[in-house]
């Protein structure tokens, strides 16, 4: 193992869904260490699939995934990877499955060998950090969409990951919750990869931008990420911009 190996590296990853002729991902090469990365690309271009391959939920047809320079092959390797990378699903409903918030946030730490008492402490602390104090005994399926997203983030942060993969985190969030999420991501100072169509969101949370194009992950160096303000009618009302 080399010490200066990047945290995560993809080598020549290819993937095609069964029954489809053209591959969805074609020889994707990618390396990241301590960066905050945004990924844009049209629907169906393979962004989520790439995340699922990284996490070992799907198996690539070809290519290698390396964590700290070590190739991942067995289930055990991926178990290690899953302790290191936290993946926030597009739909929080899929991520929350325990009856209460506290049980859900404690699920990860318990699986990683924490005692119930430790898991409880970690979970309460994580919830507190995200401004979710008092949510411990709330029923997960009765939370609002924004609350679900933040709790889902808490379930991942309680496992103290070294890097986050976020799949369209700002989708369907109201402006207040969206801003809260931006603040949280900035305060965490964790490296992350964010899939999003929300360029303003990426501008506030990422330093580098990639685009998914023809099954390739391409850096868009020429585009300088920036946020801007502008004026238009009804601009003070909540609204969306074309992305």
């Amino acid at each position: 193992m080399t010490n200066n190996a990047p945290l995560l590296e993809l080598r020549e990853i290819s993937y095609s869904y069964p029954g489809q002729n053209s591959p969805l991902l074609q020889n994707v090469n990618f390396k990241t260490d301590n960066e905050q990365i945004g990924v844009i690309g049209p629907n169906g271009s393979g962004k989520t699939t790439l995340f699922q391959i990284i996490m070992g939920l799907l198996q690539a047809d070809d290519g290698k995934i390396l964590l700290h320079g070590n190739t991942l092959e067995t289930d055990k390797d991926f178990f290690r990877l899953r302790c290191t990378l936290g993946f926030l699903f597009q739909d929080s409903n899929d991520q929350l499955f325990s009856p209460t918030v506290l049980e859900d946030v404690a699920f990860g730490p318990l699986n990683h060998g924490a005692t119930p008492r430790e898991a409880r402490e970690i979970s309460i602390l994580t919830l507190e950090k995200l401004g979710l104090k008092g949510f411990e005994e709330r029923i997960t399926h009765r939370l609002s969409g924004g609350e679900k997203k933040l709790v889902a983030l808490a379930t991942i942060l309680s496992m103290t990951p070294k890097m986050l993969l976020l799949d369209e985190p700002s989708n369907n969030l109201d402006p207040t919750t969206r801003d809260r999420l931006i603040t949280i991501l900035r305060e965490q100072e964790l490296p992350h990869i964010i899939i999003s169509h929300d360029l303003d969101f990426l501008a506030s949370t990422c330093t580098r931008l990639f685009t998914m194009h023809n099954g390739q992950l391409l850096p868009c160096e020429e585009k300088e990420l920036h946020s801007h303000e502008h004026v238009h009618p009804y601009g003070h009302k909540p609204h969306q911009h074309g992305t």
Binding site: L57, F79, R82, F87, D94, F97, G108, N111, H112
Partner: peptide
């Protein structure tokens, strides 16, 4: 999948 990602064994 969500459970496996969070270390369910």
């Amino acid at each position: 999948q969500a459970m496996v990602l969070r270390g369910f064994q």
